[in-house]
Amino acid sequence: MAEESAARKDDDIRILAFLCNWCSYAGADLAGVSRLQYPAKVLDVRVMCTGTISPYFVIKAFQEGMDGVLIAGCHIGDCHYLKGNYMTAKRFQVLRETLKFLGLEEGRLRLEWVSAAEGEKYAEVIRSFTEEIEKLGPSPLRKKKAEVGA
C-alpha cells in the first residue's frame, strides 16, 4: 500500500465505487470480459447490497482522500433483496444535500443503477464520472502531505 501511494502522483484522482454483488459488480465484470475500455482510476468495493452502505462509509472514504464516490446497485424493482436499494435512494438524497451544504462539490458523489447485463453502461458511467472528477480535481477534503506526516 505504501509503495502504491508513493507511486501515485499528487494530482492523480482516485475514485471509490461501491458495487452491489448482484447487479453492478456483475455489470462491471461483464464490462471486463467484454474488454470494454474505461479509465482505471476506480477502486471498487463489493457489497452484498447498496442498502448495506452506511452514509458513514462515504464520509470515511472522502476523509481518507477519495476524490469521488460512486454507489452503483440494481435498478429499482430489481433488487435481489427486493427493497434494499430503496434505502440507498433515500439515504443518497440526504447525504448529497448534506455534503453540498458543507461545501463539497455535488458531482463528487454519484448514484447509478447498473444491472448485470449493462456492461456498456458501467463503462460509460466510469468514463463520465472519471471525466467529471478530473474536471473537479483533487478533493478539498484530502489530507495535505504534512497532515499525514509523509
Binding site: P55, Y56, I59, Q63, V94, L95, T98
Partner: peptide, 15 residues
C-alpha cells in the same frame, strides 16, 4: 476531531 467524520456523522444521524 477530523473533518468531516465527527460532525457529519452526527449531522447525518440527526436527519
Amino acid at each position: 476531531p477530523e473533518f468531516p467524520s465527527f460532525h457529519v456523522i452526527r449531522a447525518l444521524d440527526m436527519a
